[in-house]
């Protein structure tokens, strides 16, 4: 039994490596903060594109639905590997964009931002869609009968009501996203999982990994409190 505690709860190791793991965890949080904003916007754009009415917009609708389906089907890990493995070698893209070292964050950070935004935008688009479809058709009909265009009816009548219906499922997506920031470890971003794995390799002890897990637990529990009241 004490073997178990030594392997997973060695407080000395946790203490020694605390600031390292925390620094890595901050990278998870930063990645989360950037992606959540971008994905919320991108998801809304996708959801609205999907709603465009009429035969004229059918190609755009189909493309959007296709995008959403494909990006929810392919594992995020594969998408991240494709991005980080391929983009650096696409010579036709200027080097500054291909290998971004923007705002003090290295290219793995930005590859992760791209990959996670593309995928989570798709998931969030479906949450928005559920919200929009939950609004009775009569609302849009009344708005259109008053002479509002599709765009105005969405903007003033449908979407304001739809966003009040989505906090709970959206929060679920955000919790998922926070955890999925750990996938950035496979593209060599120095976030908490990468760091704690290195410590595991050095010390043959998993306490640092537990520590990383506890940091996630600390943040997420608080999120749940806010939503259920």
């Amino acid at each position: 039994m004490s073997e178990f505690f030594n392997q997973y709860f060695d407080f000395t190791i946790m203490g020694d490596h605390f600031s390292e793991v925390l620094e890595g965890f901050f990278k998870n949080l930063l990645l989360f903060a950037v992606v959540v904003v971008l994905a919320l916007v991108w998801g809304l754009v996708l959801a609205l594109l999907r709603q465009l009415p009429g035969r004229k917009f059918a190609p755009l609708r189909f493309l959007t639905i296709g995008y959403i389906d494909v990006l929810r089907a392919i594992p995020i890990l594969i998408i991240l590997l494709l991005i980080s493995g391929g983009i650096p070698y696409l010579d036709f893209i200027p080097k500054d964009i291909r290998i971004p070292q923007w705002l003090g964050q290295p290219d793995p950070f930005w590859y992760s931002v791209l990959g996670l935004t593309l995928v989570y935008g798709a998931y969030m688009a479906e949450v928005y869609r559920a919200g929009i479809e939950a609004i009775p058709r009569g609302q849009a009909e009344a708005a259109r009968s008053l002479g509002m265009s599709h765009g105005k009816a969405m903007r003033h009548v449908v979407v304001p009501q739809a966003v009040t219906k989505i906090p709970a499922p959206m929060l679920n997506e955000m919790i998922s996203l926070l955890k999925d920031t750990t996938l950035a470890s496979v593209v060599a971003l120095g976030e908490s999982v990468l760091v704690s794995r290195e410590i595991l390799a050095e010390t043959f002890n998993s306490s640092a990994v537990i520590l990383a897990g506890l940091m996630f637990l600390a943040i997420t529990c608080r999120q749940r409190d806010w939503s259920t009241s």
Binding site: R144, L146, M148, Q161
Partner: peptide
């Protein structure tokens, strides 16, 4: 949309905007 400005409609289910 111009046609719908000229023609007003009232529905069985009222369809007022609750927000």
């Amino acid at each position: 949309n111009f046609v719908r400005q000229r023609v007003g409609m009232v529905f069985q289910q009222f369809n007022l905007f609750p927000h």
